[in-house]
Design a protein around this nucleic acid. Structure first.
Length: 188
DNA sequence: CGAACGATTAGCT
DNA sequence: GCTAATCGTTCGA
């Protein structure tokens, strides 16, 4: 039996939650799979959207934990975060890569690709494959259309520097499942 | 109000 | 490896 995560599971610091999420299963309307790569962000973190305080875009990051924070990246991609820590803090975990398991055909159609390895290996790709849109911003992760299931097996988690940021480079808050073929980039 | 800049990706060299 | 695509958000004047 796999347990569904509830808001209490997201009370930890963003790096703790980001590590915990590796191996958990994320589904949106039944489509998704195993989370294999995450990154943590926090209010006291110059790389974070929340660093300069609440704005219209990042308000979900300052809302209750256990909900989604969705933002548009480079004017093109929808990226999905899980809000964590206490309400008002501004902490979150970016879902960077998933191992496709459920609704693979739907994901292939949304992505216009067949290659399993390229379906969800990057935050923008995850958004497209799982059908993430602005409407999901602020939605609870323990209610439809979301399902987040606790990891049922433990594998080694690697850490390293986050990708695509210019500040906070020294904070190694990227987490990935060791040996996964579905990472956005290999973990050194 | 204008302008710079992304928590990226795909496609080409 | 390099860069265009593409547009909402943020910040300075």
């Amino acid at each position: 039996m796999t347990r569904a995560l509830n808001p209490r599971d997201f009370l930890g610091s963003s790096d703790e939650v980001a590590r915990m999420l590796i191996g958990c299963v994320l589904l949106i309307d039944g489509v998704g799979g195993r989370i294999v790569e995450t990154e943590a962000y926090d209010r006291e973190d110059p790389a974070s959207h929340s660093f300069s305080g609440p704005t219209p875009r990042n308000q979900a990051m300052f809302g209750p934990p256990g909900r989604a924070y969705v933002y548009r990246s480079y004017g093109i991609h929808w990226c999905l975060n899980f809000v964590c820590r206490e309400e008002g803090h501004g902490a979150g975990v970016l879902i960077r890569a998933i191992e496709p398991q459920h609704g693979v055909q739907t994901m292939r159609e949304r992505r216009g690709l067949d290659d399993l390895r390229l379906l969800c290996s990057g935050p923008g790709r995850v958004g497209q494959a799982l059908g993430v849109t602005r409407e999901l911003n602020g939605c609870r992760l323990d209610q439809a259309p979301f399902e987040v299931l606790a990891a049922d097996d433990v594998r080694q988690v690697l850490t390293g520097p986050r990708i695509g940021i210019s500040k906070g480079v020294e904070t190694h808050w990227r987490f990935a499942e060791a040996g996964s073929r579905f990472l956005s980039r290999p973990m050194r």
